[in-house]
């Protein structure tokens, strides 16, 4: 990434004699901290302190009713963690979260790559097409989930209507409320987690523009003569992609994988709005919300959220350690 330019002041900032006026270096230090301080204050108060407080809350038995009387540092207990880890459905929801995250991350990057490759070259109306492709990403999530809900509805959804008319479906599919759908594939009976797959597809649809944007920017920076030389040598398009473009894209794909993984793992609104967490789509963040609003159990909700964050950190470490293709290239 770009080298950060420094004002060339350092050599002149020698120690001065006498009343020790501040060196330029010290002045710069002060100015830097001063300029950044509003940011630091906001992030500290609205993000860092709440995180620390969540950790504390996770180890106290606190419900919304006794919150006012509860001291900040008394009665530490492991009861919340025990409750969360042994509660029915916890492990399956963690597993669901993982499948959901991996599936959605993969889909969004895969389709983003295809879109970037297809929309790379010039053609009439390219600007308009590129802008349109970004729409799922910039449009409000509430509106998008409702449109999908209606499109996929078993009673009056377009998809089921067309499915029955053009593909001869014998009964409507409840895409968002059916846990298992038994499909016969070459004579085999296969159980498909229908609602979960639908939610993953939605996530892939909504976030492939994000991947597309980054991949396209990187593709356009690949030197044209590199490709030209390969073409002159008689390389086929797939060979050019495999040996010239893909190596160039590696770092961006790795970065996108991390970004999309983090964001999807923590995602709440998409699943909540599509299925409410039902039909085998209960991801952990939806469970936290349930603990918080249905049972008013702040302690258990915090413990649950903490487990989610811990899980994410562990997965990220594993990824960065063993699987990331030279992510270091992205650090500056």
């Amino acid at each position: 990434m770009a080298v950060v330019h420094e004002p060339a002041t350092e050599p002149t900032a020698g120690p001065s004699s006498g009343r020790k006026p501040l060196t330029r270096r010290q002045l710069e230090n002060r100015a830097g901290l001063a300029y950044l301080s509003p940011t630091l204050v906001v992030v500290l108060v609205v993000v860092v302190l709440p995180i620390i407080w969540t950790v504390v809350l996770a180890f106290q038995r606190i419900r919304l009713v006794n919150l006012r009387r509860a001291g900040l540092f008394d009665n530490f207990t492991l009861a919340n963690l025990e409750l969360v880890l042994t509660s029915p459905g916890f492990w399956s929801s963690l597993w669901t979260t993982l499948i959901y995250t991996v599936g959605a991350t993969f889909l969004s990057i895969f389709f983003g790559l295809i879109a970037a490759l297809a929309l790379r070259g010039r053609f009439r109306g390219r600007t308009l097409v590129r802008a349109s492709v970004l729409l799922p990403y910039v449009a409000p999530v509430v509106a998008m989930t409702f449109v999908w809900n209606i499109l996929l509805s078993p009673q009056f959804g377009l998809v089921n209507d067309w499915g029955a008319r053009f593909f001869g479906w014998d009964r409507p599919l409840a895409f968002l409320s059916q846990r298992e759908y038994t499909m016969s594939l070459f004579g085999w009976q296969v159980d498909v987690p229908l609602a979960l797959l639908t939610v993953i597809a939605f996530e892939g649809w909504r976030y492939f523009p994000f991947a597309f944007l980054f991949l396209l920017a990187r593709l356009q920076a690949v030197p044209a003569d590199l490709e030209e030389a390969a073409r002159v040598d008689g390389a086929a398009p797939t060979q050019i992609f495999r040996h010239i473009l893909l190596p160039q894209l590696g770092a961006v794909i790795a970065l996108l994988t991390v970004l999309r993984f983090i964001m999807t793992f923590n995602k709440f609104d998409d699943v909540y709005l599509l299925t409410g967490g039902g039909a085998g789509t209960e991801v952990v963040s939806v469970r936290v919300y349930e603990f918080l609003t249905a049972r008013f159990d702040i302690g258990a909700a915090s413990a649950q959220a903490l487990v989610l964050a811990a899980g994410l950190v562990v997965l990220l470490i594993i990824y960065l350690r063993f699987m990331a293709p030279r992510v270091e290239g992205n650090e500056d």
Binding site: N266, V288, L312, V313
Partner: peptide, 10 residues
């Protein structure tokens, strides 16, 4: 890194 639902509680 932390889910916004985690920030939401405090």
């Amino acid at each position: 890194l932390f889910p916004s639902i985690l920030l939401a509680i405090p």
